[in-house]
């Protein structure tokens, strides 16, 4: 007797139960502390910007999948959600909503779907959107609201410069770094750690981002290789520069805590799709991002270099994958 309709498949016959959703929503959970901090510091603006970005990303993903690519939409796999949140985290909290929508269109439409959707893109979609906005709307994208909590309103918030921009301006005009860091306009390291400073809405709270990092490590969503190698490179590189000339170059701690370094290293550079596959490759990728970030920050025209550094290294990922093989058995 041959039984009717037994299932047949090659081995293995069991599965770990891991899914795309578990990983994506895990990243989202890791982003919650940073989001809470940004709401505390930037008030309503943070909520409006994040919501707009998320809704716009989901909308564009749905529309493109349904009507352009004629696929079954998979907007709830969490990837568009992350793109939305990360895009929002990378813009000032007083950005007008229509600019965010344009950013979302670029992020999803050009950054992700034009390559074939989830898993096929070369560049981190949120960063593609962010850099597009930075180049297209330089004024709006670099007008940072001060951290005022709910006291500040969405559009007419008081604005100021980020510590990085302050430093860059000051060094250009000939002031020494120590002058700037000891001046009253500098927020201080403690505030930088907590996030009480000007900046994009998700990047300010270093501590909250580190909590997210710990959570993702605990859940085994990511490995330590990329963030740690970025941190280490930045510390070593800026440390050497600082030791050579403390007046011209800020200390490593300042670089670690300022700008989008934490957000970039923990959440953007570790994006599954655009980062290398082997551990060795991940470390090379992290070191590359670290070096490029510092080079752009210190020698480039922009005060902040994280997004460009990640995008540049994204382009190298296929090459790294081709030549960096995992440790083989024997």
């Amino acid at each position: 007797m041959i039984m009717n309709k037994l299932l047949i498949s090659p081995s293995p016959h069991v599965h770990s139960g891991d899914t795309i959703e578990k990983n994506m929503y895990g990243v989202l959970i890791a982003l919650i502390p940073a989001f809470i901090c940004s709401v505390l510091f930037f008030g309503l603006g943070a909520i409006i910007v994040t919501l707009t970005s998320v809704v716009a990303c989901l909308f564009f993903e749905y529309v493109i999948q349904k009507f352009l690519l004629k696929q079954t939409p998979t907007i709830f796999d969490g990837s568009a959600l992350i793109t939305g949140v990360l895009l929002a985290f990378n813009v000032p909290s007083n950005l007008p909503w229509w600019i965010i929508v344009i950013g979302a269109l670029v992020a999803i439409g050009i950054g992700k779907m034009s390559f074939g959707g989830l898993g096929c893109n070369i560049f981190n979609p949120a960063l593609v959107g962010r850099v597009f906005l930075l180049i297209s709307f330089p004024v709006q994208m670099t007008t940072w609201p001060l951290a005022q909590g709910f006291a500040g309103s969405y559009i007419d918030a008081q604005t100021g410069a980020t510590p990085l921009a302050l430093l860059k301006e000051a060094v250009k005009t000939g002031q020494s770094v120590s002058d700037v860091l000891s001046a009253e306009s500098f927020v201080g390291y403690k505030n930088m750690l907590l996030g009480n400073m000007g900046g994009s809405l998700g990047e300010v709270a270093a501590l909250a981002l580190l909590i997210g990092f710990a959570y993702m490590l605990f859940r085994k969503i990511i490995t330590w290789h990329i963030p740690v190698s970025i941190f280490a490179t930045v510390i070593v590189f800026t440390g050497i520069l600082h030791l050579c000339n403390p007046d011209a170059y800020a200390d490593p701690l300042f670089h670690l805590l300022s700008g989008g370094l934490m957000l970039g290293a923990i959440f953007m550079a570790t994006d599954y799709v655009t980062s290398p596959m082997s551990h060795k490759g991940m470390i090379i990728y992290g070191v590359g991002i670290g070096i490029l970030t510092v080079v752009i920050r210190i020698f480039g025209a922009y005060p902040e270099g994280m997004s460009f550094a990640i995008l540049i290294m994204n382009a190298f990922t296929p090459l790294i994958n081709r030549y960096c093989k995992p440790v083989r058995f024997a």
């Binding site: 041959i2 039984m3 009717n4 309709k5 037994l6 299932l7 047949i8 498949s9 090659p10």
Partner: peptide, 9 residues
């Protein structure tokens, strides 16, 4: 007639 269901790739 089908006697089993193939569930592999």
């Amino acid at each position: 007639p089908r006697t089993s269901v193939y569930d592999g790739a």
